[in-house]
């Protein structure tokens, strides 16, 4: 007979997983079709600086990190637009700087403070009701923004020049998307962690790419796959007593490899 307290934790974790799937399905599909995965990975890692800042100042972690991630996202997007040729190098620098800043600030933090591992690799069983509430907010915001700007996002990710010629505010939508990425990543970091989140963002859309005919179906399928990997990962981690975040990613990775041998995958890019 399982411990009821443990069941309560599991229920909370499941709810967190549902919300994470909503966020990752929407944001992941958009960054994959827009080819902004590397920049998003950079934002996720750099956000660790925000965790350090929050702990050091004794402030609530999620809001402070979200604010920090927003600043990182805006500066990285701005620099990568300006640097053009050396976009990846610029992203790489901020990526590492953010992480280093996080570690240094945690060193300076008074007392024993926080285990950085839980933010880097997630600790879904430690997700609180407040965390879930914030995640629900992020999921709602992502869904509304994606629906509102859907036509613009679709046209711009299909072909940027054409979208610009039609007057789509491509630059504005690009910054908006990066802000959505920043906030969303921070909101789900308790579940899968800042380092692992990029896998949960990219694996489901990559698996359905070449198998669905619409961007909206890609988003819905990604949400479903995310949830499937999340729940299966949670169960496996519970049974085998493994770290939940890493197990979820491992499960997703396994299915990704399987999907590569199934027919109807992505087209070869010239």
């Amino acid at each position: 007979m399982p411990d009821p307290a443990c069941l309560g934790l599991m229920a909370n974790a499941l709810l967190a997983m549902v919300l994470t799937s909503l966020v990752c399905g929407v944001i992941g599909s958009l960054i994959v079709v827009n080819r902004q995965v590397f920049l998003s990975g950079g934002i996720a890692h750099a956000s660790f600086g925000g965790v350090g800042l929050a702990v050091c100042l004794g402030l609530p972690v999620l809001p402070v990190t979200a604010l920090f991630a927003l600043c990182a996202a805006l500066s990285m997007s701005w620099l990568s637009q300006r640097a053009r040729m050396f976009e990846d190098a610029v992203i790489g620098v901020i990526w590492a700087l953010g992480m280093a800043l996080g570690v240094l600030l945690l060193n300076l933090a008074p007392g024993y403070g926080v285990d950085p591992m839980s933010y880097l690799f997630g600790s879904v069983l430690a997700v609180s009701g407040t965390d879930n509430l914030l995640m629900a907010g992020a999921a709602l915001a992502d869904a509304v923004l994606c629906a509102a700007f859907y036509k613009g996002f679709e046209a711009m990710s299909f072909e940027e020049d054409f979208a610009r010629a039609r007057g789509v505010p491509v630059v504005g939508l690009y910054y908006l998307l990066m802000c959505m990425v920043a906030v969303s990543i921070v909101m789900v970091m308790r579940v899968v962690g800042l380092i692992l989140v990029i896998a949960l963002l990219t694996i489901p859309p990559l698996m359905v790419m070449g198998r669905v005919k619409k961007l909206s179906s890609m988003i819905l399928w990604s949400i479903g796959l995310c949830l499937f990997f999340g729940v299966l990962g949670l169960v496996v981690s519970y049974v085998l007593d493994l770290t939940a975040g890493a197990t979820i990613i491992a499960v997703a990775g396994l299915f990704f490899v399987l999907s590569l041998v199934l027919p109807g995958r992505m087209r070869r890019e010239r």
Partner: peptide, 12 residues
């Protein structure tokens, strides 16, 4: 410049 795997029908 168009991605070869973009999910869209002809009508889209």
């Amino acid at each position: 410049d168009i991605s070869k795997s973009f999910p869209a029908t002809v009508l889209d």
